[in-house]
Write a protein that binds this DNA or RNA. Structure first.
Lengths: 296, 296
DNA sequence: CGGAGGCTTGAGATACATCAAGGATCGTGG
DNA sequence: CCACGATCCTTGATGTATCTCAAGCCTCCG
């Protein structure tokens, strides 16, 4: 509609080297350039049935596109807008004092990010495109103004922020309590679920991130991630071929707490302590199935 | 920053008569204390200078009291209100499928909790009083309605939620990247800072939580927490006597990444590998004080 | 005074990190 | 089109930080 959608990419600080891709497909042409409120709610997965919301057809939100490797925002940059992923994959990261990246999330379709910038008015994290992305730009002022007009929408804003908080709580719990195997398993399951939500296959998909990024996200090294995937493959839970993952036994992945002592690891254990007989030894955190009362 | 004014601030003295204690669900409303908007903003540490806010004197928020060990809300309980800590100490926890607690936070004066209930309309975590507590009850509907009247206050709501999100991001980063020693050190520093904010001594204070709870919060076992505190004590960073902590070297605690190879651990290392000469061994994560060399 | 948590400390086990080497993949330029 | 380098991934050998198990002490409270 409008003529202003030129603004293709606002690439700030020099992204790695990704100049020169003239023959790149026309990602600028693809995808929508504006969304109305109804579409916004739809992608956010929040009910937007209210007549007033649907009626607001002329209120539009601009889309912005980013290419693989480009930064959407950096740490410390003045905050002015939130983003919703319309298509594509990203990562958000924190940078520690040594320059090491710590991955916080992998936003994909329907996810909101940038919320951490509200408090200090500067983004607290950095968002990077892992693929070409189409994002919906949500100027914060515009958003809150809208919330005042549509009460239902206001609640949705709070709700989505709350959802993010709950997600991070689950993350903390996972990092604090689960084994490497359980973390990787849950990561795969959550990816699988997200793909299903987006209409892709939940059984066969491609990872958009490196082992290093997965490891950072899960609090593990890339070698441990790689080994764990290989182990899952060996016992038939999944198939792995580089970035391609096939989910073979979703149920087992969902409930996995520690790898069964058999399989690949058995040989290792056997060889290492052939003489020493370690009896049963599986207490406390327990094998996959174990009921426990107590607590508190 | 005293909240004197109108309010008789009772530092956690046992509230008089609390009818028995169903301990579950029921929060005893003592209904004696009320805060207006200005006081609310004050305890939340957000600017509330706007005339309109101060003017709203008759809009009052109810306080509720809880005794040590009581639950403010439990997981799955219908959500209707947020809480701000006016005085006292609490913990929020997640309960896993085996009934094990995972501590998420230790709310104290000025902290907001209950936000995780907005999304599903049920609390996603459980809040338990670690001491007698005086909380400000914030009915969610009342809160959002107020935000619509006072724009400045509306922004504050978003801001405080954002602050919580940033806090959790920092937590994730810590769990994913730091050693046990660094986690404990940072925990002590953050406690010290909070005590200072509240007007207590930042150098000498009492822990309100057990080693087990600290360990759960930091993703460690209680033994590791205990040992780490003992080690800090041995090298003079702190003094420890049960729940009483004295901060001796705040700067060292702030920058600590891993314990210097000397001290208690030295003897252990020495005895264990007397013959094998482990060179300097301080690469990568580096010793306590280390300028930022490379990285990235 | 006794019992129940809570804390400390030691010895040993192990899960994961670290170090290292080689193979697969892909974009780029000759 | 192929060779090349840069990543990325896999796998093995080894090290070690943290957990686990166990025992004893302390402190609070009925």
């Amino acid at each position: 509609m409008s003529s202003t959608q030129i603004l293709p990419v606002r690439t700030e600080s020099t992204p790695p080297a990704l100049n020169a891709s003239p023959l790149e497909t026309g990602w600028q042409r693809q995808g929508k350039l504006w969304s109305n409120l109804r579409e916004l709610c739809e992608v956010l997965r929040i009910p937007a049935s209210s007549a007033s919301l649907i009626a607001d057809e002329e209120l539009l939100f601009q889309h912005v596109q980013f290419k693989t490797g480009q930064r959407i925002h950096t740490i410390g940059q003045p905050f002015d807008a939130l983003y919703i992923v319309h298509s594509g994959f990203l990562k958000t990261v924190l940078i520690d004092e040594f320059g090491n990246e710590q991955v916080l999330s992998f936003p994909m379709k329907g996810d909101l990010f940038g919320v951490d910038g509200i408090h200090t008015r500067r983004y607290a994290s950095e968002a990077v495109a892992l693929s070409n992305c189409d994002l919906i730009l949500l100027p914060f002022k515009k958003l809150t103004a809208l919330g005042r007009i549509h009460l239902e929408f206001e609640h949705s804003i709070y709700s989505v922020m709350s959802r993010e908080l709950v997600r991070e709580q689950a993350m903390i719990s996972m990092l604090g309590a689960l084994s490497a195997e359980a973390r990787v398993a849950r990561f795969l399951v959550s990816l699988s679920d997200r793909y299903a939500d987006m209409g892709y296959s939940s059984r066969l998909f491609n990872l958009r991130m490196t082992r290093h990024e997965i490891g950072s996200y899960l609090g593990l090294t890339l070698e441990t991630v790689s080994r764990t995937l290989s182990a899952f493959n060996e016992i038939g839970l999944i198939t792995v071929d580089q970035r391609s993952i096939g989910i073979k036994d979703p149920e087992a992945l969902k409930t996995l707490r520690r790898l069964p002592p058999s399989s690949a690891r058995a040989k290792q254990v056997a060889s290492r302590k052939a003489r020493q007989q370690p009896r049963e030894a599986s207490q406390r955190s327990g094998a996959p199935c174990e009921a426990f009362p107590t607590a508190v």
